[in-house]
Structures are given as structure tokens and as C-alpha cells.
Nucleic acid binder design. Sequence first.
RNA 1: GGGUGGUUAGCUCAGUUGGUCUAGAGCGUCUGGUUUACACCCAGAAGGUCACUGGUUCGACUCCAGUACCACCCACCA
Length: 905
Amino acid sequence: MLPKAYDPQGTEDRIYKMWEESGAFKADASSDKESFTVSMPPPNATGQLHLGHAVMLALEDIFIRFARAQGKEALWLPGTDHAAIATESVVIKKIQEEEKIPDPRASLGREELIKRIAHFVSESQDTIRSQVRKMGSSCDWSRERYTMDKSLNRCVNEVFTKMYKDGLIYRGHRIVNWDPKMQTTVSDDEIEYREEKAPFYTFQYGPFQIGTSRPETKFGDKYVVMHPDDPRYEKYENGDQFECEWINGKIKANIIKDKVIDMEFGTGCMTITPWHDHVDFDLAERHELDKEQIIDFEGKLLPIADEFAGMPIEEARTKIVEKLDKKGLLVSTDEDYVHRVAVSYRGKGKVEPQIKEQWFIDVNKPVIEWPSSAKATGGKKKKNMSLKEVMQDVVRSGDIKIIPDRFGKVYFHWIDNLRDWCISRQIWWGHRIPVWHKEDKDSKKMHVGVQEPEGDGWKQDPDTLDTWFSSGLWTWSTLIDPDLADDHSLSLQDLLDKSPDFQKFHPTSVMETGYDILFFWVARMILMTTYATGQIPFETVYLHGLIRTRDGAKMSKSDPSSCIDPLEIIPKYGADALRLSMIVGQSPGNDSRLFEEKIAGYRNFVNKLWNASRFVLMTCENEGVDPHEVESLKVEKSKSLSLADRALLSALQDVIEDVTKGLEEYRLSEVGERLYSFIWDYFCDWYLELSKGQANCDVLVHVLRTIVKLLHPYCPFVTEELWAQISSDDSGILMKQLWPEVDKKLKDQKSQDELQIVIDVITAIRSIRADNGLDQGAKLEVIIHTKDHVDLLESQRDHIMRMGRLSDLKIDAVSVQHENAASMFLKGIEVHVPLEGAIDVDKEKAKLAKEKESLEKFLKGINSKLGNERFISSAPEDVVKLERDKLKSVKEKLEKVDERLKVLG
RNA sequence: GGGUGGUUAGCUCAGUUGGUCUAGAGCGUCUGGUUUACACCCAGAAGGUCACUGGUUCGACUCCAGUACCACCCACCA
């Protein structure tokens, strides 16, 4: 016999091991079945899984288990990401703290540091693997990938080379975000802003007053810019020159007029520093101005600063202000000025714009033919598209569907503002740029290719690639056969053609991830994959929201008290309960809040199902039935089923229908609720209670088996554990079972309606008892007066008596005031109990009259709609059909109302 | 400055193209309960003018416009 409460801790690991050993996670590329693929967003190999990962795993596991049960060849490919900057900075910090080495890069050197990082990564991969298992994820471990795998590196190099040859990758001097702490560039999307209070100074600059919070960048300033329409500076012309006293003596300055200046801000004019500011850089490009570097890559001032050369920014700032003040050039200081400082998203260091030679991807160059392969789902072939245009095209055409669709807008807006993507990083951890340089006495040579070129003296470019470059290839580079990675006679196209997994499983079906990395990752996958493979990376993008605390705050690692750690929750409540608590009540794209009571609630539900199953097993035992020997067929043919049985089987068909449709449409929250309430409110609270009178083990077992199948994607562990108790002998494990199909023969709306009447009667008796302060123990005698339901209620006499706790029950076939109502007499008190509708004749009449009126109006509305030719011709067929159905049902209702009004006189 | 989402019971949230919603659930609260599984339970109850103002409609929580507040995203801040 099963224990009284479900024990997740004693169950889950055992079940997971059983699944894994059964081979049920493995997908077969040679199968004829329709494929369904999910690429797991690879967690960063830097540490622990958090709730964000848990949501992702739960959602994807539901998709994949459902697809598998539907008979599809389902592949869920797991993996981890090397997370370039994030990982390198974590390890460097660790070494600094643990080994007291202030500058690990300099002390250890490239090779040793990479070795250390690789060691760290492999440890953290082990933790991640075990954590992913804890969630019950049914992913194919035999295909696990890592973004730094050899075969993935091959793909990276192939794509880089291809892009370079197509002129989509170029090298150039451009302003980039420089992180002096990590000594690397950072992409625009990896920057966040922090508010900071810093003094804002106004200086006298010749005849002008200029404002700045960064005096240390002002050495090279020889341009002063103002708006062309600013009346205050009317007398100055673009290009005018003047001489003025500045930090280190007299300088020659030029006047520039440009519309980017905000006349309202400060004095309406400013000096510019093109080397260290994005806007200034653009402005300088437009007006062809000189650019000069003031701050070096360590964050110290250069010789241009004279006496300040070599000073770090912060120190120099105050000293420069002092000097200008002495010179009488400081006009005012605003100590309370708040401005936003750019900070690296990964390394958390302040970002300093710098001009540097970097590698870029040109997103506007029109050289792409799309779709490039016959397998792609796109429309007609178009030529000369840019990367940007392809990215827009695949979403606009509907080839890629984004859920929720409003994120499509966000996506387009982002693409509109997209600038060339800087892909080189000056860190060591990552895919090294496949470029080799050779310097002779009089010539510089460069080789771009998949492999190191022949001959001596070639040195590989020291830079690595942005981590999103390789993750952009994730959906397909993971499907390339690793055995082909070393065969350099193969082209990129050959690699794709010769990899069975790619042929079978790409494009993938769903990309499920948080909306916060729509730009970082989803957009980049679309860009890289369409270009490299000619296929879209995925058909559907499902974006989940963030999980927040009860108060709506973000769960942050820095504040552990605010965090719910999946690893603490799982042993306490079980992975199934955690999964439910994150899925139900969560709609895609919207944040949701999670707290322990909510998880406890779903733990209770899991336990409820557990006990319902125990009850079924006990009942079977009492009846001498072995649940393993129950055949589903018996249920279908049996005509001697009780009303409750017929109603339940019919309701079950509705559930199968709703759940299947809901899952196909990715409405996971609704489906979860539907199952929850069916199991608890209907199956347990009514059916099991009714069955205590007359149990039909065939039906009990059949229904429980179906329930367990339907719930399995949400709660894989309990359901599998229960399945072992109730499955027929030869059927095998639950996760390999096929999805239940609706059996139309079992649909029986009449039984459902009739059972509802019985339920209403029982409920009425219960509420009368409560209303009259009669406790549960008191035995009651009840007389039901009814006109139409005598036979029905008579047949359910036992149930009504038992569940209403009655000592006696009389059912009288008398004509009551009007149909569909019954009255009851309790202990001499007459109590009217509606079965449906009210009993007070006047009230009833008034209500019916009102209903009639509104129905007539409704009818008029629909008639006018259907009579409108424009509506008929323009509306889709199903909409018109819907209206016609409405018309029909309204007419029927109206007839019923009329009939009842007649009865009432 | 541009954009997106939210505002429904004390709390957390559902509500599928406007019409069985006379607005639901879970938690919490209150009352009662040793019922052939389950106190991680059972039976009941209280609690909402669906943020506000207009509009469209025979009919609006649902569609449109505007207002207020909250949250987030993008851009800019010399």
C-alpha cells in the first residue's frame, strides 16, 4: 500500500534515473516520425541554476513531453554556454580573492588563465547537469553540447570566414564601449546605466560657457557646438575660429553648428570629445573633425594632459577643476547633479567610450539572397537583402511566430535602431577570431580562414569573439555531426548536408526563453542562422516573463533573502509542485510573482492526486480487482454504467479535448488550471465521493490512467510513480505512453446534465443544513417535490441520502408551481430550493420578461448583422458561422423563455 | 522624449475573437466537521459599482479615445 503522503524526495531521483536508463530521452534522427525540436537555451557555465532557469526547464519539458506523447520524434538538446566575459570576470575575481593575485591576466598569462577558467567551467557544468535533472527535464543528454565544443568552434570559424568573404565582416576604427576593468570592448546591448551623483561644472570657454561633468576629457577640446537656430549665438557662424585660454594655456577653437544640440539644456552650447563619446563621435564624423585620444585604455590620462598625464580619471578631475578655478574659468558648480553612468552588464565596471580598431558585422550591406535554400519556409526568393532586412522579413512573413505577439513590435523597433555589431573582444576566454597576421620587414599580411595558414610567422589575432556570436549559431551548430568537425575538405554546406541531426531536426520547433534576452540572443540567432544555413532557426518563439518576489521586486543574487532557490524548494515541496507554481497563473511575456505559499498550494494538489490514487487502489483491492489487469476496452462497451460513471467519462472527454487544444496553442496556464479543477473539484470531490456507494473499478482505473497521462507533462514525477501502480501489465513506462484521444462514443451530455441536477440537490440540502444551523451529524428527513426529475432522483436515492446525510428521503411526483423547481421540507420547515431558476412566481416572471426583452434585442442585433451584405462578404467564414450559431441558440432560448412564461400564466 | 504592459475580492492572479460572467480560482478570514483516500482534508459563509471619464453597440471586464497611478524597454542627458 502506498504511504499516506507523497514523498518527492524518495521518489524523484529514482524515477529520473529510471527514465534516463530507459533511453526515453533519446531522439532518433533516422525515424520517420514528424520531428519536434527544442534547443535548450544554454545556461552560463558560471555557477548555479536559479528560478529563471527553472521556469525555462519546466516550460520546455512540458512542450517536449507533450510532443513525445503525440507520437512525434522529440528532441530536446541540452547544453551550456561559455559566457565569455561573465566567466572570465568571475574566475579573475576568484583568483584575486583566493590567491591574492592582483592582476591574474598579467601574472598567469593567457595559457594558464584559460586552463583555470576551463577547469572552473567543467566543475560548474557538473552542477548544472545535476540541477537540470532535478527539475525532471527530459532532455537528450547524449547530444549535450557546449558552445566551446570543437564542432561548434568549426561552425564559428566557418561562419566568420563566410561573412568576411561576403564583405559582411569588416575591421575598422570606430567608437566602442571600452571596459577598462575587464580590458575589453562591450556591445551596446551589454551596457546598463546606473544613476550617480556627480558635480556638474560650468566653465568659461572663450566667449562661451560650457557645462560638463567630465572636465578630465576636456584637454583636446577645440570645437564648441551650438544649435543653428539658437538666437543667443546668432552672431557666430559655423566654422568661425577664436582663441581662448584653456586648461594648459591658449588654444585655437572652432565653432560648429549642429542640430543635435538641445537649446534648453544648460547654456545651449558644449565642447566635444569625439574619442570618448558616441554622440560627439558621430558629430565629428559628420563635420569631419579631428579626434584625439585623451584617456588611455587603463583609464589614465595621456601626455596630452601635460602635468596631469598618467593620473587616473577621478584624481585628475578634482585637480583640473582646481586649476581652472584658479585661472578664473570656473563659473559655477552644481553638486547635486545626477547623471547616468554606463556600466558593463557583465563585468560591472564603468564603461569608457574609446576609438579602437575592431571587427564588425555590417547589418546593412545588401548581399543576401533569401531564402537561400529550397528547404527554407520563406516565400519567393529575394535578392540583395541586408541582414537587417532578412531579420525583419522572417518575422513579418509569419515564418517565425512570436508569443506573445506584441514582442514583434519591440523586435522591429530594435532592428530599426540596430547599428553594426562589434564582435571582437579583448578578453581571452572565448572563440578566438580566425584571423592570422604576419608582419615582414616591409609588408603586413592578413589571413582569414577556418584554419591556420601554411608557412612560418603567422600569429593569430589575440582577440576573441562576442559570446553571442557563437550562441547565435546554437540551434544548428549543435546538430552538426561532431565527427565531421576535423574534416576540412568539407564546406559549411557539406557539414549541414552530411549531418543527419541537422537534416532531421532543423529548423527547431520552439525557442523558449525570457523576454529579456530577445535582443541579445533571439534576434542574433535569427540573424546568424538565416545567413549561415538558409533556414529559420525556429518556428515559434515563446517568451516567458520574469519571476519576481511576492512584493514584485526582482530576485537578485546579491540579496539571498529575496530569492527562492529551486534547490531548496525541490526537496521540500517536490519538483512537480515547483513546476506547477511557476506555470499556472503565468502568462507569456508577463512577469509573475512566486512565494512559498503558492508552491505549498500545488504541493497539496500533488498530494491530493496521490491520495485519490490511493483510494482507487484501495477500492480495487476491496472489490478484488487487480488494477494492472483492467482493460480500457471494458469501459467503452459497458452499457450498464451508472449515471455518475457516464457523466464522468463524458466530462473526461471534454477535458482531453480542452487540454490537447490548449497545449497545442501554448496556453499552459489555462490547461494547468483546467486539470487542477477537474481533478480536485470534479473527480475527487464528486465522483470519488459518489463512488463510495457503488464503485466501478474499470471506470476508476481508466479515468485515473487518463488523468495521469494528461497531467504528466506538468507533473512528470508523481504521475510516473502512480502509473506504476495502475498501468496495464505490458504498457511500459508513462513517459512513453501515447496521448489520450477523445472517444466520441463516451460523450454523453445528457448524463452530465442529469448528474448536475443530482449535485444541485445535494448541494441544496447541504446549504439548507448550514443556513438552519443544523450540524453535520444531525440526521434529516427530506421530501423532494418535483415534477420532471422523479425517476432521475429516485435512481440516485442512495447517493442523495448518503451525501446529504439523510435518514429518510421522500420524492413526490407532484406538480409544483412551475417546472424545474423543487421544494423541500425539513423538520416541518418548508424550504424552496431552486434546481435551476427562481421560484417566486412574480420574480420569475419579471426576470423572464427582462430576459425576453434582452434576447429580442440580441436577436435584432444579430439579424441586422447577418442581413448586412458587407459583413457577410468581408467576414471570414467561421465568424459568419459563429453568428449563425448564435442566432440559432438565441432563438432556442427565446422559445424556452416563452414556454416558461406560458407555464407561469 | 519614444514605446510596451498592467490597474478585477485583504493578498497573488485567471477571464480565448463583446452575449449562460447574475464576474472566477488559490491563499487568507469566519462557521461547522474523528464521513470506507487525503487536516498537504471535507462542508459552508463573508468579501468586487472589473482604476477613472467618455464613446461605439440592443448589450462592454472584454472594442475605441482620453485621464491617473504602477512597472518595464529603447534613446538622450554636453
